[in-house]
Structures are given as structure tokens and as C-alpha cells.
Design a protein around this nucleic acid. Structure first.
Lengths: 133, 133
DNA sequence: CTTGACTCTCCCCTACGGGGGAGGTCTTAG
DNA sequence: CTAAGACCTCCCCCGTAGGGGAGAGTCAAG
């Protein structure tokens, strides 16, 4: 099938399919004489895999590596578990960071309620933030 | 003082100070005859405010608005509290999202341990991810 | 044979906060 | 006076996953 049909059946845009070709996660089976990308039925399944992998936080570059392993006949499971572990660690760090920021905002908000806006120091931009430094 | 001295005293780069001028959060007091940016002592304090505001998640565009309010003689406290509230809500949503993803990764990891790599379906790219769809 | 839908490549654009470097001017110490 | 170092503007670059549109070739139906 051609790119338009694949995109329609996959429920995505032609641009996205072309982009996936470019980054190497979804290559067409072949190119027609006119240069058109031609895909087999398996392209649909492959597309769904890419989406599922993206949904669990893998980047297209990583997904490409997973697919390359598979195409070389190896089982990418170990590699995938590794990736997932690393992503989980990054995620934990990121969540902790955001939590800390969230706590800081809560603190600022409580302080803002205690401060009197009329007693704002004119030399500062805003005592809500300035004093919290 | 000129831009190099301000950057050194603030512990940042000249590029950053120029960028802050461009986006309007830290304007020089004046320009010398040669076009050089000239800053007063207060620039250092203003710089610190910008950093503090960035640290609590405000974007430069928002910081510029806060400063503009202040420069118009108004107290930006209410606006700042508003901004902080909105940022907190965004943060909550983002944290929940990342938590959900983290839980999904945990689930995948547990499943990967139960699956036998040797019984990977050759028709799929990776059963760890595929089956989780 | 023509027309309209489809496809191709190529290039610029998004958010965000700057970094790198070119090419030209200014200042200041020796 | 001259040379180094500081400064100026302007333009392109990073990451991520595409979106928008130009200009040109291709395919199918009427």
C-alpha cells in the first residue's frame, strides 16, 4: 500500500510516516518506479509497536536501535529491559525534582498569604519571590 | 559597569545578560556613546530576582510581565500569586502524568522478568512492549 | 487527454534558554 | 601608536517530534 493508505489505516498523518522513515523506525518495504514508498501489511503492526514504545517513554532513536537488534535476528528483550530501567531512573529523578519545586511553590503561596501587599518593599520587584531566595 | 563585569559578578555569561536584555527582563540603565550596555549596581539585584523567579518555574516572558507591573508602580504580588497557582496546577498534572508512566514501567519490568526471552514471538519486535499495548 | 488527488523532496517553523562564532568597533595599557 | 581584550550586531545551532507549504512529478478516472 502507499503512504496515504497506511497513514489513514494507522490513524496518523502522512508527515509522521515519512518522518518515521527518515529516522529509521518504519522503512517502506520498497520504492515504486516513481519513487513512491510502498508498504506491506506488517507496516501497520510495526507502526503500532513504535507508538507503544513511545507511550512508555522510549525515544525514536532508541526504538530504532531496538528494531535494528530485532532485524539482526537478536532478541532485543535485554536491551529493552535496560532502556526501561534507565528511563525509570530518569523518571524518578525528574519526579523528585518536580515534587521539590511543587513544595517550594506551596511554601511561597503560604507566605504570600501572610505578607501584606501594601508593605511591599519598593526596592524589590516582588517580596513573594525575592525574600524566598 | 559594563556587561563583562556584571556577568562576572553575577557568576553568569555575557551571552545570558545580553539575552536577558533582549527578552526584556534586565535592561541596561543606558547605552554609552559607543553603544556599550551600562548597568548600575541594582542590575545585580535584578539579576538575582530573575534567577529566583526562574528557579520557582516562571518563564522569562512571565518574569518580564512581573517586572513591567512593578515598573508601572503597581505591586505585582497578586499577579505573582496567580502565576504561582497556575504553575502549581500544571506541575500537579505533569507529576501525575509522570507517575502514571512510572507505574507503567514498573508493570512492564515485572512482566519482562516473567517472560522467557527464548519464547519471544519472532513476528513481533519485542514482546515486552508489544504485549503491553 | 485532462484534471484532481496523491506523492516526492526540500526548506523553514514551533518552544526554551541560551551557546558558538563571524566580522567589525572601542578602549586601555604599554 | 599599536595590539590585546572587551564589546557590538547578526546569524546559525542544540533537542524532540513532527507541521506547513512550495514546486514538481505521478496515477486513475472520466
Amino acid at each position: 500500500m502507499r503512504i496515504g493508505e497506511l497513514a489513514a489505516r494507522a490513524g496518523t498523518s502522512v508527515k509522521t510516516i515519512r518522518y518515521y522513515d527518515r529516522v529509521g523506525v518504519l522503512r517502506p518495504a520498497e520504492r515504486g518506479a516513481s519513487g513512491y514508498r510502498l508498504y506491506g501489511e506488517d507496516a501497520l503492526e510495526r507502526y503500532r509497536f513504535v507508538r507503544a514504545a513511545q507511550a512508555v517513554g522510549l525515544r525514536l532513536g532508541e526504538i530504532r536501535e531496538v528494531i535494528a537488534l530485532r532485524d539482526r535476528g537478536e532478541t532485543p528483550c535485554g536491551f529493552v529491559v535496560d532502556l526501561i530501567g534507565r528511563r525509570a531512573a530518569e523518571l524518578d529523578a525528574r519526579i523528585a525534582e518536580l515534587q521539590a519545586l511543587r513544595d517550594e511553590l506551596r511554601r511561597l503561596d503560604r507566605r504570600a498569604r501572610r505578607l501584606d501587599p501594601r508593605r511591599c518593599d519598593p526596592g524589590l520587584v516582588c517580596h513573594v519571590i525575592d525574600a524566598g531566595t
